[in-house]
Amino acid sequence: MAAGTGQVHERGDAFVEVRELRKVFDGITAVDGVSFTIQRGEIFGLLGPNGAGKTTTIRMMATTLPVTSGDVIVAGHSVHDDPAAVRRHIGVCPQELALYPELSALDNLMFFGLMGGLTRAEARSRAMENLELVGLADRARHRVAKFSGGMKRRVNLAIALMSRPELLFLDEPTVGVDPQSRNHIFTTIEGLRDGGMTVLYTTHYMEEADRLCDRVAIMDAGRIVALDTPHNLKARLGDPEKVTLEDVFLHLTGRRLRDEG
């Protein structure tokens, strides 16, 4: 496995293949020739300081942001050539709480399910299953506006699962939630992976990545600076039992403060 500042190109049972992905905004390069693959059933962590290009990468992979150059292949479909086909395989849990607070949890899930191509009966049944999964079945008919931050995060996640995606994008899904909700989200994600779902996960919490991710890519300034299993990344700095992923992260990206720009 290649690492360091070089790009990692892998082959095999890759469900996702990111090829020399690049995004330029008004002359500023946000993502600079990123390439990696994600295996089917893998939880792949994408880490990096603010402004590293993680969210931009996810948005291009999720077809909501056009690529400047390069391509992403999901289940054999190109985001550039056939974004509609890609969308049939993905679910996105964005960093923002992208839901409708005025509606109930059930209505939120059903709405996104219907938009994903489910029938009304399927959407209702799947919404209830998903709410059960995230521990909110008893609040199904409650308005999301009345929910705590952690509950909203779980609704946000449950929406992403409505289409039973093969590839799930989780963009900082545990921001601002209490330890109980965070733990519930972890167990949910692990259960999804065990069920065969492929997950791309971004977070600023290194212990989360260490616990959840099979492999981790660390991005900085739009490029991948390291890609390996958490254990191997830690082993680069010393004893993996003593070194933390945060040590690796700071070692690779530096201690300089980063501001989003």
């Binding site: 299953e129 259960g191 999804l192 069920g195």
Partner: peptide, 16 residues
């Protein structure tokens, strides 16, 4: 713990 849950919401085939 989640193996049972995994059976509820897992990735698989694309939504037709």
């Amino acid at each position: 713990d989640m193996r049972e849950c995994g059976a509820v919401a897992t990735g698989g085939r694309a939504v037709p």
